[in-house]
């Protein structure tokens, strides 16, 4: 089956064009900065009179900042690395020599999707593992539900990847990038509106937030990840970026999976039917 050949080529392309290495370098730079920050924070708190429980909570919050940064970095890397893969190859006619080989078109799209999914898995695993290791070895902080949180962040990236593939079968590279990042931005703002609505008891704001999450459930997955990794005290804090107000339910995670599958099916259909 040609799927695995295409998957391998997608990996090879990312490696040869230095996309993979640049992304990993950016990730390493982030981990270094985060490690330095965590180190100084631990050192400074050691001499203070802050009670250990509060100190632990402060360090847990800093860990959440690290996970949030990973989430944003992973989403942006997902869009930037994959935005050109379908629309760019169609525009440059590079796809002609490949699409005329003996494989159905869906295998091309799935092969590429799997290639990017594999690379993103590596990226998220390395960065998430790095933040976890920094938290454990420098601050002695271990978050709750780390595996669940990592999987939710990965699911968010897969969702964004699939949306990028779908719009890549419909629009040019630039338009595709604008649409996907625009949708993610919409979800981001919607998430905050929902949070503010929950704190200020404004049902209309909550509704606006939920609708934006239905349009693009990417940010909702991060908020769910943040919720499952938060300490019990952290969940009770009323208004913080990682507070538990209006945390998306498991139903929203199910909706995100459904959204991903529908987007992938539409991308396959559109790619199969369109002229190349």
């Amino acid at each position: 089956m040609n799927i695995w050949i295409i998957t391998r080529v997608t990996f090879l392309e990312a490696s040869r064009r230095k996309i993979l290495w640049t992304a990993l370098l950016a990730g390493a730079a982030f981990l270094t900065l985060f490690g330095i920050g965590m180190h100084y924070q631990v050192k400074d708190l050691q001499g203070s009179r802050i009670p250990p429980l509060v100190r632990y909570q402060i360090q847990s919050t800093l860990l959440q900042v690290g996970f949030y940064a990973i989430d944003m970095l992973a989403v942006i890397m997902t869009v930037l690395t994959s935005v050109d893969t379908i629309s760019g190859e169609i525009a440059s006619s590079t796809i002609h020599a490949i699409a005329t080989k003996p494989q159905p078109r869906w295998q091309l799209l799935i092969g590429k999707w799997l290639g990017f999914a594999g690379m993103i898995a590596m990226f998220v695993a390395l960065l998430f593992g790095g933040v976890l290791a920094i938290g454990k070895w420098i601050a002695g902080v271990i978050p709750h539900g780390a595996l669940q949180g990592a999987l939710l962040i990965y699911l968010e990236c897969l969702l964004v990847l699939t949306a990028t593939f779908l719009f890549g079968t419909l629009f040019s590279t630039l338009t595709n990038g604008v649409i996907v990042l625009g949708l993610h931005g919409l979800a981001f703002v919607g998430g905050w509106l929902e949070k503010i609505g929950a704190v200020t008891d404004s049902q209309r704001l909550v509704t606006v937030g939920i609708i934006s999450s239905l349009l693009m459930p990417s940010e909702a997955l991060w908020r769910r990840a943040s919720y499952v990794m938060q300490t019990a005290i952290g969940r009770t804090l009323d208004f913080s970026p990682f507070g538990a107000q209006s945390a998306p339910s498991l139903a929203m995670v199910g909706y995100a999976v459904f959204y991903l599958l529908v987007a992938l099916a539409l991308a396959l259909y559109r790619f199969q039917e369109r002229d190349l």
């Binding site: 080529v9 040869r16 064009r17 006619s93 590079t94 020599a97």
Partner: peptide
Amino acid sequence: FLPEDFRFYDW
């Protein structure tokens, strides 16, 4: 098939 202005993964 050899497409016109053959383009391929140049890496």
